[in-house]
Design a protein around this nucleic acid. Structure first.
Lengths: 137, 137
DNA sequence: CCCTTTACTTGCATTATGCAAGTGCTATAA
DNA sequence: TTATAGCACTTGCATAATGCAAGTAAAGGG
């Protein structure tokens, strides 16, 4: 698969949409950021049940876009480890705003109350705190 | 068209993705927020060239999700006016973060330098200012 | 009454997605 | 050394979404 040969426009919103604007990419990013997932099988087991060919395709695209990197697990060469790049980590503020919006408007949101409260109380330090954890890991 | 009968999960990220997670919906929201567009033909003329059946479908979905409303132009009953609801306006912080991310990582971004600077300098007041304009209009 | 504008619909080809089954590599056990 | 199992994908095929071009319907103006 090639990186998208050219973009529909040079609009920043459009760049974001062409990079991760489908129904699955951000769920993988979410699992990397908030669930500490690292391996193919872990992504496959997410509640939303992505199918295996789509997962493979999205991991490849995300790597090509530079949002994640892929390496082998030192303890098991067959096992692969996916990690966020700084470009991927920097999606955190946007994801936080997305979660805040959904928590506000989705009656059935599963967003934990404590998380939602921290969002309202001090969004910036929440972001900083999560970002630190991601950089360390 | 029905609203999605049920969601893949109750995750807030997933709610957002199922609500506007495709390659077109947010471009319509963008045009409403940043370009002051209001009518079918204006959306159709966006640089990215959405096709007419998809535009009709997305406008319907966005209305069903409560992000926009549709009414008739008082001066011309054949002409329709689309407006953002408060649920739609509240996507602004997320869009701003998305733009900031793209402006940072897309070499060819068309994000105006002045806008980008204001983003870095004082994101909150930029959001507040834009939101005021939207509410008034 | 005709013509234009505006907002869609419709039909059909192409592309993306979903699902089930299969392949290949690695490590561990017999 | 062979067998077995885990993990990361591929492949084939059915279904759904998208893109493109053309057509339709209602309102307003002349």
């Amino acid at each position: 698969m090639k990186p998208t040969p050219q973009y529909r426009s040079d609009c920043p919103i459009n760049y974001a949409l062409e990079t991760f604007g489908d129904k699955w990419s951000l769920l993988i990013i979410r699992d990397l950021i908030f669930q500490g997932k690292k391996n193919y099988g872990e992504f496959l087991n997410a509640e939303e049940k992505i199918s295996t060919n789509i997962l493979a395709n999205r991991l490849e695209k995300l790597e090509l876009e530079g949002l994640i990197s892929k390496s082998s697990d030192p303890d098991n060469h067959a096992k692969k480890v996916y990690r966020l790049s700084s470009k991927g980590i920097d999606l955190l503020p946007m994801l936080i705003e997305m979660m805040a919006w959904s928590a506000q408007y989705d009656q059935h949101t599963g967003c934990p109350v404590e998380f939602s409260n921290q969002l309202k109380a001090d969004k910036q330090s929440l972001i900083a705190q999560l970002k630190q954890q991601l950089i360390k890991s």
